[in-house]
Amino acid sequence: MIKIVRSSSTNAEVTDYYLDVIASLMEACGEKKYEDDIDLKQCKKKDIIIAPTSVDFVKLYFKGYKNQIYWMQGIDAEESYMRNGSKLRSFVLDAITKFAMKKAMAIFYVSEEMKKFEEGKFGISTDKKCFIMPCFNVSRTEALQVDERKYKKNIFTYVGSLSKWQCFEETLDFYKQIEKIDTNAELKIFTFAKDEARRIVERKKIKNCTVSSVAPEKMTEALADVKFGFVLREDDPVNRVATPTKLSSYLSAGVIPIFSKYLKDFYDRTDSFEYVVPVSDFKPTEKLQKLLVEEIEIKKLISEYMELFNTYYNPQYYIKKYKEKMCKLLEEKYGSNSK
């Protein structure tokens, strides 16, 4: 039997979906899943546990749950150091991550870059038990909704928190340069930190800008008239391994992403696309300036984005791709348990 340990993060909608895809892959191999209302204490020690963090993994391991699948959402030590600046905490998280990587029966990375980074840091090979699947949320990407009228005006959006690593202030500086190119441009900010966002917008003297908050399930509707969406990041390990969910949210609404090349997995995957805008710094590129004035080929845009939803952002694609490998891992694990 499979038991999912749900994440307590504020981004539960995304994490829950990812965990469910992992469980679906195992169900395709003949396993059965416990319902969420079944408490972990009711599970058997030989059951397979899907852990959403390295800390969860270690706690559960020492409670006797040895058959665990570890989802590496991010590189914990580096993210922690970015938030807290504590070398001790970073050292402890490194030790926990290394332990989880060694002991996990299977590992899910969100990018090839993440796998390379963590394997290189710890000198561990996980080829035989690893799976790579980006972060995405199918509830927002099941259908591509595009109204061609949205491309007649240059409306931009920023969706997310004001955490330093999301580069909110740098995004505003970027947009301010766009206002000099197109004085009719607009910016729509969707964040739950509305008051702080408004203060920063006022301080930076951004002109045509609105700040509001929207429930996740209403985001596609909120982006109905938006042409461009920002996902700008600094060049650091945390961002190079990341696969931000908001990229799939933008694409599902036909919003053209303006993103940092440092988001390496998405950059590599869309390298040949016309309707994405990779940037290497916080300045409008020549490509973006062209898209501000050129007519958008709707059919081509839809074709490019649907290519991603048919593969890169498609859970069934990963279930089919990884079924044989997961079934083999499960057979090997059961074999060792039966001895």
Score class of each variant (00 low, 15 high):
Val226Met: 05
Phe309Thr: 15
Thr243Met: 11
Val241Gln: 07
Arg269Thr: 14
Asn314Arg: 12
Lys227Cys: 13
Glu294His: 00
Leu291Ala: 11
Thr243Val: 11
Val279Gly: 02
Pro278Glu: 02
Ala253Pro: 07
Pro257Asn: 14
Phe259Cys: 06
Val241Glu: 06
Val255Asn: 14
Lys290Trp: 08
Ser252Glu: 03
Thr311Ser: 14
Ser280Ala: 14
Lys283Phe: 10
Asp265Lys: 09
Ile302Glu: 15
Leu232Asn: 15
Val231Met: 05
Val238Ile: 15
Tyr317Thr: 02
Asp271Phe: 10
Glu304Leu: 13
Thr243Cys: 10
Lys323Cys: 00
Ser252Thr: 03
Glu307Trp: 08
Val231Ile: 08
Ile302Ser: 12
Leu251Glu: 12
Gln289Pro: 01
Lys290Cys: 06
Phe266Lys: 03
Ile258Gln: 00
Lys323Asn: 02
Thr243Gly: 04
Lys325Asn: 03
Tyr313Gly: 08
Val231Lys: 08
Pro244Leu: 09
Ser252Pro: 01
Phe266His: 11
Ile296Gln: 10
Leu251Ser: 10
Pro244Ser: 03
Asp268Phe: 13
Tyr322Leu: 07
Asp225Ala: 13
Phe273Asn: 03
Lys325Met: 05
Tyr317Gln: 04
Ser303Gln: 10
Val226His: 13
Tyr275Trp: 09
Cys327Met: 06
Ser252Ala: 12
Ala253Cys: 14
Asp236Ser: 15
Val277Asn: 09
Arg269Met: 07
Glu297Met: 07
Asp268Cys: 09
Leu291Glu: 02
Leu292Ser: 07
Asp268Ile: 09
Val279His: 11
Thr285Glu: 08
Tyr317Ser: 06
Tyr317Met: 01
Lys328Met: 02
Val241Phe: 00
Pro315Cys: 09
Asn314Cys: 07
Thr270Trp: 15
Ser248Val: 05
Gly254Ile: 00
Val226Arg: 12
Glu294Lys: 09
Thr311Tyr: 03
Thr245Met: 06
Phe282Trp: 12
Glu234Gln: 13
Tyr250Arg: 01
Leu247Tyr: 07
Ile258Lys: 02
Asn239Ile: 01
Pro278Gln: 00
Tyr313Leu: 07
Lys300Ser: 05
Val279Ala: 05
Val279Phe: 05
Val276Asp: 12
Arg240Leu: 10
Tyr305Trp: 04
Pro284Cys: 11
Ile319Asp: 01
Tyr313Thr: 10
Pro257Val: 15
Tyr267Leu: 05
Pro315Trp: 06
Glu234Leu: 01
Lys300Gln: 09
Leu232Gln: 13
Arg240Asn: 14
Tyr262Thr: 14
Pro244Phe: 04
Ile296Phe: 13
Gly229Pro: 02
Phe309Cys: 05
Val279Tyr: 13
Val277Leu: 14
Asp268His: 15
Lys320Ala: 04
Phe259His: 08
Ser252Gln: 02
Ile298Thr: 15
Glu286Lys: 00
Glu274Tyr: 13
Lys321His: 12
Thr243Arg: 11
Met306Ser: 07
Phe273Lys: 00
Pro284Asn: 08
Gly254Thr: 12
Tyr262Met: 04
Phe259Gly: 08
Glu286His: 11
Asp281Lys: 03
Tyr250Cys: 01
